[in-house]
């Protein structure tokens, strides 16, 4: 508990800073934290707003899970096959700096402003770091361990699931985390660009309608999403990596 004290103090300091900025600027566009938090229950009891948030989370989950499955398989393929690596590395490097959320307007024209385009853009936005880290993780698996597993009679599929995947897991989780943050950001941006529903839509609509308390409440909700997802992710990661630690002991025995 004591190790959280500095963070709590920092949080309080930020809220104070916000309040001070509110009072000193005197802008209608910058309400104080008190009125923003007061708008929160009102927003959350509003059925439409809840629907918006649920829609956002649903699309984000779909896009992110697709990206995770695709990214891990693709990355491990690159990490274990030198041919795949040489073939795909330049492509990945070229795609890397493309702002994926910027593809939203084109995807909208192709697929409409519904779920399909948004899920696709979230998928595109979050898959690259997952591919990259799974690739690095797969590469770092000691060739000697893989060889000795092969010598013991493990087939390629078994080797992939029992040796390569657990050994690459810590690195894969780094990618999954970056991917998660990007999925959240892409989700918000996609909804701002294609405004039909979702939390991003709520955020910018509130700004356009000059409902500033509501806008800041939406910011708080998005921030909270960031924190909650981060917490859930940490919990899952600790669970899995504990398992991967025992996996590493097995590896030592194999090597």
């Amino acid at each position: 508990m004591t190790r959280h004290i500095p963070s709590i103090c920092a949080g309080v300091a930020l809220l104070l800073l916000w309040e001070i900025a509110h009072r000193s600027f005197g802008l209608s566009g910058l309400p104080g934290p008190v009125s923003a938090f007061r708008a929160l229950p009102e927003l959350l009891s509003d059925g439409d707003a809840l629907y918006d948030i649920a829609q956002s989370l649903q699309r984000m989950a779909a896009g992110y899970l697709l990206a995770a499955v695709f990214g891990i398989s693709f990355g491990l393929l690159m990490g274990t096959s030198p041919l795949a690596e040489r073939l795909l590395n330049p492509l990945i490097m070229m795609i890397y700096p493309i702002p994926k959320a910027a593809l939203m307007p084109i995807l909208m024209i192709w697929l409409g402003i519904g779920d399909a385009s948004k899920i696709l853009v979230i998928f595109l936005g979050s898959s690259l770091p997952i591919i990259y880290h799974a690739w690095q993780g797969g590469r770092s698996v000691s060739q000697i361990v893989v060889w000795s597993a092969a010598a013991m009679g493990m087939g390629p599929v078994q080797r992939l699931f029992r040796i390569v995947l657990p050994a690459a897991l810590p690195e894969i989780f780094i990618g999954l985390r970056t991917g998660l943050i990007l999925a959240l950001i892409t989700m918000v941006v996609s909804e701002i660009v294609a405004r039909s529903n979702g939390i991003g839509n709520l955020l910018f609509n509130s700004m356009d309608m000059a409902l500033y308390d509501r806008m800041f409440a939406a910011i708080i909700i998005i921030a909270a999403m960031g924190y909650v997802l981060d917490l859930i992710f940490e919990a899952i990661r600790t669970r899995f990596l504990r398992w991967s630690d025992s996996g590493e002991h097995i590896q030592v025995a194999v090597g």
Binding site: L14, F25, L30, L184, G226, Y227
Partner: peptide, 19 residues
């Protein structure tokens, strides 16, 4: 840093526009 890092900064953009 620990407080601000997990925050999706893009959500603050409307606030920056207003300020």
């Amino acid at each position: 840093v620990r407080i601000l890092a997990p925050l999706p900064k893009i959500a603050l953009y409307p606030a920056m526009i207003l300020i």
